[in-house]
């Protein structure tokens, strides 16, 4: 793959999946500094993993694999990057096509949801993020490398746990 082709594919993938990366970052990072660091790390890993990307793989599944793998084994850095710090600015996620009131309520739910997800153990976070994004059990099992039945059983437990956490937060 030529460097121009590498760059073109990279930009295309990022343009289409920035939201996905932000969702993973917000589900794993506890604060703004960590979020920026993890975001940069995921973008870097996408760049490095791109030569091994095969067109037959679904881009969203591939991006989720790279992003979740990075988030799962990510080490918090004592000293954050200095040189590349301003290379990437994390954009805000917005909810389209809603009235101002609907947006406010929706944002509240999303904020609580992220908070609840971050209270789950890391591997559970990976499963629920994929589930919430509409992945089927089969697709989730491909990303995590567990059997479909195992994913199903685990997700049932996680959903209950998540609902409990959300209810606790509301009360």
């Amino acid at each position: 793959m030529s460097i121009q082709e590498h760059e073109r594919q990279f930009r295309q993938l990022l343009d289409q999946h920035t939201g996905l990366i932000i969702k993973v970052v917000r589900s794993f990072a506890e604060n703004k500094d960590d979020a920026e660091d993890l975001f940069q790390e995921i973008v870097l890993q996408v760049w490095l993993a791109l030569p091994s990307y095969r067109e037959e793989a679904k881009p969203t599944t591939w991006m989720y694999r790279v992003a979740l793998n990075t988030a799962l084994v990510w080490k918090r850095k004592e000293k954050r990057r200095v040189r590349g710090e301003e290379a990437i600015a994390i954009p805000e996620l917005i909810s389209d096509g809603m009235t101002a009131e609907e947006k406010r309520q929706n944002n509240q739910i999303i904020e609580r949801l992220y908070k609840a997800i971050r209270e789950l153990p890391t591997t559970k976070r990976a499963l629920i993020v994929l589930y919430l994004d509409g992945f089927t059990y089969r697709e989730i099992s491909e990303v995590v490398g567990l059997s479909e039945s195992n994913v199903g059983v685990s997700l049932n437990r996680i959903k209950k746990q998540l609902e409990k956490l959300m209810n606790e937060d509301m009360s």
């Binding site: 343009d15 932000i22 940069q40 973008v43 909810s95 929706n106």
Partner: peptide, 20 residues
């Protein structure tokens, strides 16, 4: 929750590729 989650979207990423 799923619906709220999927309603999130964002514009393109302002990425300084050369710098990265």
């Amino acid at each position: 929750l799923k619906e709220a989650w999927q309603s999130q979207s964002c514009g393109s990423l302002e990425l300084d590729l050369g710098r990265m």
